[in-house]
């Protein structure tokens, strides 16, 4: 059954007078040439609101100068400058730092044993006992007593928690007994 027939059947059942009204003229009119002119009116409207598309062929290719000018937009320039600053900061932060302890200038400085001894005697109280102990063999520590924090272990010399107590007079003897090589190692 066609849809028109279905509709007529529906109207017959619901409201037959509406079926008869459909057969007459509904009275709506359209101005002459309206549909002939609509297409151009729509395109004029599109032009007026700037919504009309430009075909690819009609779009001129920008020159190099125009392209460069387009790069100099304030917002783009600010963004570019921001990225540049971040990149430079990252490069500065992650570049390897100069190791002054092994700089060539310091490596060429020669220290005599006398200079080292004078330096050690003048700065005796500033030196960490563990630094001194580290450059000496274990058997050359007659004045050093090792005090473990808990105190019960029988061999605490190699324990990282071990603390060293050296009397100043013992330290002076210790330094006098050190060879030149040991003193040099202590200072470097």
């Amino acid at each position: 059954m066609k849809d028109k027939d279905r509709l007529n059947k529906e109207l017959d059942e619901l409201a037959p007078f509406l079926k008869s009204l459909r057969q007459g003229d509904d009275g709506h009119r359209v101005p002459p040439q309206y549909f002939e002119n609509l297409e151009s009116e729509v395109f004029s409207h599109l032009d007026a609101i700037g919504a009309k598309r430009k075909p690819l062929a009609a779009a001129p290719r920008p020159s190099l100068w125009q392209w460069l000018q387009s790069l100099w937009q304030p917002r783009a320039a600010l963004a570019f400058a921001g990225v540049l600053v971040l990149a430079l900061a990252a490069w500065w932060y992650f570049q390897p730092k100069a190791d002054y302890a092994f700089s060539p200038e310091l490596a060429n400085v020669s220290i005599t044993p006398e200079d080292a001894e004078i330096y050690l005697m003048d700065n005796l109280m500033e030196l960490d006992p563990e630094q001194i102990a580290a450059v000496l063999p274990g058997e050359n520590l007659p004045g050093i007593t090792l005090d473990p924090p808990s105190g019960n272990s029988s061999d605490t010399r190699n324990s990282p928690a071990t603390t060293l107590e050296i009397a100043p007079e013992d330290l002076e003897d210790l330094l006098r007994d050190m060879t030149d090589e040991e003193l040099k190692n202590l200072l470097l």
């Binding site: 009204l21 007459g24 003229d25 509904d26 009275g27 709506h28 009119r29 359209v30 101005p31």
Partner: peptide, 8 residues
Amino acid sequence: WFDGDALQ
């Protein structure tokens, strides 16, 4: 642009 009769 409307000139329908009374029923319309």
